[in-house]
């Protein structure tokens, strides 16, 4: 086993996915198969190989510090599931940092 059901439940919390018990069971099995398969990348001895994070050899791509028009607030809040007083209304946020 590469991954336990508890770990899957932990990942689901980290990823903010409210999975039910059946989904967790189903997913645990599938993730185990997939992770076992992709773990093959570890077969490649690559201690001295630098990792590639970007497919283009670009550096220092900047924009000038200049204003561009913002969106109209009506358009912004029209997208919101709930809005109030010009702001996005969201459910209570738990007291954690």
């Amino acid at each position: 086993m590469t991954i336990t059901r508890d770990e899957v439940a932990h990942l689901a919390r980290l990823a903010r996915l409210a999975l039910d018990e059946t989904e967790l069971d189903h997913l645990s099995g599938q993730l185990d198969v997939i992770l076992n398969s992709v773990a093959r990348v570890r077969e490649v001895a690559a201690a001295d190989i630098p990792p590639t994070s970007h497919a283009v050899p670009l550096t220092n791509v900047f924009r000038p510090d200049a204003l561009r028009p913002s969106l109209a607030r009506e358009e912004v809040l029209a997208m919101a599931p709930a809005a109030e007083e010009g702001r996005f209304r969201v459910p209570r946020i738990l007291d954690e940092v």
Partner: peptide, 24 residues
């Protein structure tokens, strides 16, 4: 105290009406 934000061209001014200095 840049004129525009870190990754977009919205203004950084303090005290603007809510959600008026936002873009995609």
């Amino acid at each position: 105290g840049t004129t525009s934000k870190m990754f977009c061209g919205c203004a950084t001014e303090f005290g603007a009406p809510p959600n008026t200095q936002v873009c995609p």
